[in-house]
């Protein structure tokens, strides 16, 4: 009987697999299983409190949500929030990171890093609660803006107006997450060897040219990473919108998909329908992540 030959690469691969087993088990339990369970549940008319066997609906929940104006409003609210938050976050966090890397004083740089990063470690619920107080008609939001613009007594309707409440949720998210992405960009910028800039300076390049011709191309993997992370965070946004609605803000303008999932599944107890929504959100996130990878064609940069 011929003995099966196992190459050294294959042997190493077995060890590699063994080391990844804990991670696979973790993700299977806390990520893959909930996704598959949601997919399974989305096929049934399942109610949270019912002990009776749920009725099989096939794609009934999906056809319902795709004909529901409420769900399409949630798609709109999610995309408005994502575009309004993710683009400014990526652009401004890159600008701030470049600004901070170029600071000569380490103390000043450290101060800015801490100042920008602090909101990221505050829980989303606390952050939203702080801003809820600031956006109260008698709160600091109106007071500061009116003092700055010399417009006493004007109510900016931070939470009351349909447009303003969307802007308010974006402001909270921007404030909370910008520091986190600044740190990621600083890490990416620090990896670019100074010798490249020195060579460019000798060749007569200006700082502006160095940014567009050296920094940005070499920072591409970090830009892709930050873009994907920021976009996924924005698509998953929940706590800010939830707390604002609890605080009296109108639901419809900020009824993002996650909030709709909560209302449908928990308030209205239709867990099957909520599962269908969560699967749609998952597919949207998967599609956008794939598109970003596909179109950015991220190359590994080696120095």
């Amino acid at each position: 009987m011929k003995r099966k030959y196992i190459g050294i690469e294959r042997k190493e691969a077995r060890w590699g697999f063994a080391f990844t087993v804990p991670a696979i088990l973790f993700f299977s339990l806390f990520s893959f299983y909930p996704i598959l369970n949601a997919l399974y549940t989305s096929m049934f008319d399942k109610r949270v409190l019912s002990l009776a066997a749920p009725k099989f609906m096939g794609f009934g929940n999906y056809s319902y949500i795709f004909t529901s104006p409420d769900f399409w409003n949630s798609i709109r609210a999610t995309f408005v929030f994502t575009l309004g938050t993710f683009l400014p976050i990526v652009i401004f966090s890159l600008m701030l990171a470049v600004f901070m890397v170029n600071l000569k004083s380490n103390k000043v740089r450290g101060f800015f890093q801490i100042a920008y990063y602090t909101p990221a470690v505050i829980s989303s619920v606390v952050a939203a609660a702080i801003w809820l107080i600031m956006f109260d008609p008698r709160g600091l939001g109106n007071q500061w803006l009116n003092a700055l613009l010399r417009t006493p007594g004007v109510d900016r309707k931070w939470l009351a107006d349909a447009t303003m409440v969307q802007v308010s949720t974006m402001v909270v998210y921007f404030w909370k997450y910008i520091g986190y992405f600044v740190v990621l960009f600083i890490t990416g910028l620090s990896a670019i060897p100074p010798a490249i800039y020195e060579a460019a300076t000798i060749d007569g390049s200006s700082k502006w040219q160095a940014f567009w011709r050296i920094t940005l191309p070499l920072l591409k993997p970090t830009v892709v990473l930050v873009s994907i992370m920021a976009m996924l965070q924005c698509l998953k946004t929940f706590s800010t919108q939830y707390l604002f609605v609890q605080g009296g803000a109108p639901r419809a303008p900020i009824n993002v998909i996650t909030l709709n999932i909560y209302t449908t599944g928990i308030r209205n107890q239709r867990i099957g329908r909520a599962s269908a929504m969560s699967i749609v959100l998952f597919l949207i996130m998967l599609l956008f992540t794939w598109m970003q990878f596909r179109f950015s064609k991220s190359e590994e940069v080696e120095y």
Binding site: A160, D161, A162, P250, A252, P253
Partner: peptide
């Protein structure tokens, strides 16, 4: 939830 949406839409959303 539906009555709330209706009232909010006239009070706050114009």
């Amino acid at each position: 939830t539906l009555i709330r949406s209706a009232v909010e839409s006239v009070i706050l959303s114009g």
